[in-house]
Design a protein around this nucleic acid. Sequence first.
DNA 1: CTTTGTATTAACAAAATTGTTAAACATACA
DNA 2: TGTATGTTTAACAATTTTGTTAATACAAAG
Lengths: 204, 204
Amino acid sequence: MERHENTEQEILRAAEQEFLEKGFAGAKIMSIAQRAGVNHAMIHYYFRTKENLFNRLFEEKIRLLTTNLYPALANTEQPLIERIKNTISSHFDFIAENHNLPRLVVNEIISNPKRRKIFRQKIQFAIKTLKPALQTELDQLADNRQIQHIKAEDLILDVVSLNLAIFILFPLIEGVFADDNKTFLEHRKEENIKVILSRLNYKI
Amino acid sequence: MERHENTEQEILRAAEQEFLEKGFAGAKIMSIAQRAGVNHAMIHYYFRTKENLFNRLFEEKIRLLTTNLYPALANTEQPLIERIKNTISSHFDFIAENHNLPRLVVNEIISNPKRRKIFRQKIQFAIKTLKPALQTELDQLADNRQIQHIKAEDLILDVVSLNLAIFILFPLIEGVFADDNKTFLEHRKEENIKVILSRLNYKI
DNA sequence: CTTTGTATTAACAAAATTGTTAAACATACA
DNA sequence: TGTATGTTTAACAATTTTGTTAATACAAAG
C-alpha cells in the first residue's frame, strides 16, 4: 500500500491544475486522481463529491482575486501616478502567475447564478472601498491640470481589461508576435502602463 | 409524430446556444435536443457525434472571428484616425453581438492542440495581411508628429484587449458600475476609443 | 395505391463518470 | 502484543451521457 506524505494536499494540488485547465465540467475525478497519484476513491474519502472539492478551491481563489487590486494603490506614501504604475505592474504580475484563473472564474460564474451573486457582492464591496478615495485624488490632479479627468471606475476597468486580456489571448497568439514569450509579456506590461498613462495624459 | 420545418437548423440553433453558454464539455446532447424540441436521436441522425456537431459550428465561428478586424481598417478612403475609430467601434459592436464567442474560442482552443495550431495559422495570416500597410501609415503620421510612435501589433492588441475584456468581464460586473447595461456599454465603447486615441496622442 | 426514401420515435446498449463499500493495511499507543 | 484509528485499495454500484437500432410514420414519385 503506497502511503503518501499528505494525500489531501496532493489531491488539492492536482485538482487545482485540472480545474484551472479544463473547468468544472471538463475536469474528471479519475484524471485528478491520476495527477495526484492516488486511488480515485481517496478523493471521495477526503472531499465526498467533485463539487465539494471544487468549491473548496474556488472560494480560496476568489479571495485571492478580489483582494489583489488594493495593496499597491493604498500605500499613500507615494504620489498617485507612481502608485498607479505599481498597481498595473503588480496586477499584471499577479495574473501572470495565475494566468488560467480569470478564465476559470468567468466560466464558472457564468454557469452558476449562486456563485455569480456572491462574487458580485465581493466586487461591489471592493469597488466601494477603493473608488471614493481614488476619485478624490484623480479629481485633485485633474484640477491641477496634471492629468486629464477620468472616472475612477473607468480607470480601474481600463487597467484590468488591458492586463487581463493579454493573458486570455495569450494561448491564441503565442508565438505570433514574438518568439520569446517572456520578452513579449514584459513588453506588453510596459505597453499597458504606457496606455494608461497616456489616457491620464500625464506629462513626463 | 411531430414534424419540424427544418430539424437540422433547429438543432444547429440550439447547439450554438448550448455550446456558447456551457462550452464543449458542459454542453449535453440531451439538453441541446430539449432546446431544439426534438428527440435526441435526431442529433445523432444528422450529425452522428457531439464532436461533429461542435466542429461544424466552431469552424464557422472561427471564420467570423478571424475576418472581423479587416474591413473597417482597409477602406483607404478615410484618414487613418477615422478608420481606427470606426474599427474600434465596429469591433466592439461585433463582440457585443457575439459576447460569448471569445470565451468559447479561448476555452476550446486551450483544450485542443490541433485547433490551436489551425487557429494560430489563421491569426498569423490575418496579421501578415494587416500589419505592413498599417505600420507604414502609422510611421508616416508619427514622422509628421501627428501621433506618437507605436508598433502596429501593439495598437491591434490594445484595441482587441479593451474591447474583448469588457465583455468577458461583463457577467462579473453587471450592475456594479451602472444600472443600465446598454448605457454602460455605450460609455465603455467611447472610453475605449478615447484610450486608444490618447495612446496615439492624437491632437484634436 | 404501392413503392421508395427520408424523418421520427422509443427502447435499448455502451461507455464514461461519479460515488460507495468492505476488507486490507499502517500506525500509534495502551 | 494487540487493539483502536484513520488510510488505502479494489471491486462494485449508480448515474449520466452518448450512441444505436428497429419499428414506424410520412410524403412524394411512379
